[in-house]
Design a protein around this nucleic acid. Sequence first.
DNA 1: CAGCCATATCTTTTT
DNA 2: GATATGGCTG
Length: 739
Amino acid sequence: MISTQMLNKEQQEGVLTTEGPVLILAGAGSGKTRVLTNRTAYLIDEKGVSPYNILAITFTNKAAAEMKSRINEIVGFGSDGVWVSTFHSCCVRILRRYVDRMGYDTAFTIYDTDDQKSLMKDICKRLEIDTKMYKEKMFLNAISAAKNELIDPSDFLARAEGDFKQLKIATVYAEYQKQLLKNNAMDFDDLIMKTVELLSVDNEVREYYQERFHYIMVDEYQDTNRAQFMLIKLLAGKYKNLCVVGDDDQSIYKFRGADISNILDFESIYPNAKVIKLEQNYRSTQNILDAANQVIANNRGRKPKALWTEKEAGDRIVFEQFESASEEAYFIANDIKKSVKQAECNYNDCAVLYRTNAQSRLLEERFVANNIPYKLVGGVNFYARKEIKDILAYLKTIDNGKDDIAVTRILNVPRRGIGMTSQNKVMDYAYNKGISFYDALKEGDRVPGLSRAVGKIRPFVDLIENCRDMLFHNSPVKVLEYLIKETGYVEELEAEGTDEAKARIENIDELITKMVDYEQRADEPTLGEFLEEVALVADIDSYDEDGDYVVLMTLHGAKGLEFPRVYMSGMEDGIFPSYMCITADDPDELEEERRLCYVGITRAKSHLTMTAARTRMIRGETQYNAVSRFVKEIPKELLKGYVKKNSTDNMPRSDTFRKAKQAFKSKPFSATPMQTYNNMQRQGIVLDYKEGDRVSHIKFGEGTVQKIVQGGRDFEVTVDFDQVGVKKMFAMFAKLKKV
DNA sequence: CAGCCATATCTTTTT
DNA sequence: GATATGGCTG
């Protein structure tokens, strides 16, 4: 039974307004999940709606699972019937049932980014595209963007309007779709787009689902793209009881096609929509909320809103700048350790957030050294690891022999002595005969030019066929175990004996465990369903807030979560906001970064610490970065000790550094590795070039030395570069070479 | 055909 | 710094 007395007035309104379109603008920490779960409970308990007629859509499995369990807590029995799922799994469910009406096999496989890349590579090779000119990734990005906008290959061609590059993309796009269909596979974007297509084209299917879903709710609506928008519009087409929840200030997935106008224009698309604003924040202290409000206030083009809280001011925000990124990591690790020791918090109260996954490395090292339990979320997905992808490719081959990408991946893994030459011969044969790669392997003796290789291919085909036969009478796990034994995959790793090989074996064991777990959960376990589940998990799904560990993740990953103590690391211009956004002509990109900052700040309940480093290694180059402009947007009164010690002041410490910075104030500065720097310092600097000499620079290319001036401990060298013009730089950093 | 070494490119963010 | 690719050799 639900009780509305725990809800504020606006929240109650959100729960009780069940009919017609509703837009809930829910600020960070304003209890939107509570509204959604209570609303569902209200529909079932009070309005007698069948759970079967309710659909709730989220972005991650974790969010879906949480909503499900919270509905369960309130409603108890009967809530199982509610469809709570992610966009992608919802679409898969629909497609598995009806996609055969569009020429696909309902047993299609789902391609992840890796698979897409492999396929694209093959296509570029076949179409003889110079991948130096046009990168595979460029095509994939363009295709993904098109799919998010529901633009199919023929639309794309029509829009190309004679533009050479666009025409090229159109050709590749068409071929890509053709190959996907042939492989009986779909990529992530297809899942949404094909569902929209199915619902648009097939009246019977559309009416079925429209009739089924009397009530639809969508979480994180600000992150929907055009395709997802259409999907929802189609599904809600009959009853129009659509409730969307979102916050335009937390829209951070534009790069993935999210269209903020979906939420901003909701009222004009659904004219009689009721709009409810949730502005009371229940999560953060006043200081944290003030900081968030002040930062986000710098964005134009947002729906005006003001978050408020009844909470006390709380601690001020800590900001610290360090000489290097490792010192930063050292500080964060120590600070967490200290706080736990003093019983101020547990490890799982703490989260360390950063802009890019690469930043996690130093933190991890520090955490290991300090014996701090931590969990890294994101980065390389478990299912993206080599050994896991190999095993999954076997399973995919068993499940869907049409998936050429999977078959080619494992044909020679472990080594069977089948090289590229043989593989290409089979591939050509398959292409000419219009059959799948695997089917071509089966008739290997008829492939021209395959002499000895036939004998090597045979055992591979037999293995796959045996597994398929086994599947009729055995559980998928049995087949998996048989497979691992027969291929000798683990055996080979054991023989290797390295730590890395051991870690791989552990991962494979983990995969078996996951499959066992799946079989126990499923009513009727099938290999296909397992593969599907595996394809659609995000790393965040495995994060469990009950375990006592610090969590490390990107700011993007943290959306929707909250922690008593939050550390935002790498608060530097060039890192966050990223260099790409600073240099972009489009000011919207900076605004998106600012929203990301807003998301980060509002994750914190009571303690927020921001850190920055003066120097940081990025891709093997040392960068010097200024303090993030976002830090400067926070009023100083909210910061603890902003101008106190010299370790936290804004001026660079060393004379050399200050001058270096002046010379390179516009760009993040790549310096020579520290090794050389130290050598030079020890030896005193000897320049092997003089004024008028031709020199070359690692980044700027060749140029002529105009002036050399002794400055402090280093030489200030002025060079007129052929490509980029005159630059002033310090010899110590510039690493100029005489040519 | 496989294993080794040189090189090139990468990085924002993810279902 | 790390990983993917390409060329070479045994």
